[in-house]
Amino acid sequence: MHFPPTVLTPDERSLRASVREFLHDERSRIGSGSTNFGGGSDREFSRRLADRGWVGMSIPTEFGGHGRTAVDRFVVVTELLAAGAPVSAHWIADRQTAPSILKFGTDAQKRCFLPRIAKAECTFCIGMSEPDSGSDLASIRTAATRTDGGWLLTGTKVWTSGAHEADFVLVLCRTSPLGENRHEGMSQLIVDLTSPGVAVNPIISMNGAHHFNEVVFDQVFVPDDLLLGEEGQGWRQVNSELAYERSGPDRWLSTYGLFRAFLGSNADTTSDAVTNAVGRIAARYRTLHNLSLSVARMIDEGGAPAAEAALVKDLGTVFEKQVAETVRDLAGISPDIDAPETEAGILADAIFSLPALTIRGGTTEILRGAAAKELIR
């Protein structure tokens, strides 16, 4: 496991400056962006980003993308998340569905979905987790059986972020009976969420937010041409997909809005405790930025830094919790969920969101196991 040191090139710094200028002009659309994609969902904002070439950046030009690097995308999304921009409408499709389709999809699937993703016209959510499965993804029970021209899909997915607003869901399901090797016999299907037999039920968070959903499939017909990759190779494909999910700045910037609000309210402080805390947090942000940038650079150089990505996610989400706890200890205010644009409201949102931060994209235990296995190979 290694993280080669790297810095932004002059062109990458110029791109960063362009994004910051755009965000300054768009500041009326940007809220507090407190935690868990606090900027929310705004399809028009996503389309404005797409018009500038900042959605689908790493999709090849032949499929409607922009042929940019993983580092270019890292630069753009870091600025968007730090500003609290409303990116969740296009986020899943851009971050991991597009790379999965590019890697495993047929030519027809690439030409159907990738140009629409790059224009922010087609949105996706992820159908992995299930009731009673916890972090044991191999225990899924959602199953698809053969029928004329395709599959009949039955089962339930939970914690499906943004399913109530998405157009499609990429579902991990069993297409063969469970055998001795639980990792065999799984496949991925691209499912239109408007299909007959699909029900999307809201899961309301403790803070009243609607981000998660339960998605129920009752004999949903999925055409053969929407099988992603090879039948029975779902486990391998999903693990490849999770690598895109784990190393990005969204794994260490979720509570940045809270830190920014804390800085604003303590701009003139003379407290040594506050000054020391701000210094420690800022140093950690810089460290995690450099680790995440290193992973993006390795991807551009043809590497497959799955263990490094898992480690960044682990370090990042533990740190996000520490940020919230530090602010709570030093702010001297009571959390107030009814005041969303204030420091008290952002603090309340962060506290309610903390349990989810170390679960999404793989629990802390799962991630450390993945990193440990790589270290002993």
Score class of each variant (00 low, 15 high):
Val278Cys: 08
Arg286Gly: 12
Ala261Cys: 13
Leu189Cys: 10
Gly232Phe: 04
Asp218Trp: 11
Arg251Phe: 15
Tyr285Asp: 02
Gln233Thr: 02
Met206Pro: 13
Val198Met: 05
Arg246Asp: 04
Asp224Trp: 03
Ala277Ser: 09
Trp252Gly: 03
Phe221His: 13
Gly279Pro: 14
Asp272Arg: 03
Val200Asn: 07
Asn276Trp: 05
Gly257Asp: 01
Leu258Lys: 14
Val274Ala: 05
Arg260Val: 15
Asp192Arg: 00
Phe262Lys: 04
Leu189Asn: 12
Ala209Arg: 14
His211Leu: 14
Val295Gln: 01
Ile203Ser: 06
Arg286Asp: 13
Ala277Phe: 06
Asn201Val: 07
Ser265Asn: 11
Ala296Leu: 05
Phe221Lys: 08
Ser195Leu: 11
Ser265Tyr: 08
Val222Ile: 15
Phe259Asp: 14
Asn213Thr: 04
Trp252Thr: 02
Phe221Ser: 02
Arg280Ser: 13
Ile190Met: 12
Gly248Ala: 10
Val220Asn: 11
Val220Tyr: 13
Val295Arg: 01
His210Trp: 02
Asn266Val: 09
Ser205Gln: 08
Val215Gln: 10
Asn266Glu: 06
Asn201Leu: 08
Arg284Cys: 07
Leu263Phe: 00
Ala209Asn: 12
Glu230Leu: 09
Val274Asp: 00
Val191Ser: 02
Asn239His: 09
Ala282Phe: 11
His289Gln: 12
Asp224Gln: 07
Val198Thr: 01
Thr287Gly: 15
Leu288Tyr: 09
Asp192Tyr: 05
Met298Gly: 05
Leu193Gln: 15
Glu241Cys: 06
Arg236Met: 03
Asn207Cys: 09
Pro202Ala: 02
Asn201Glu: 05
Asp272Lys: 06
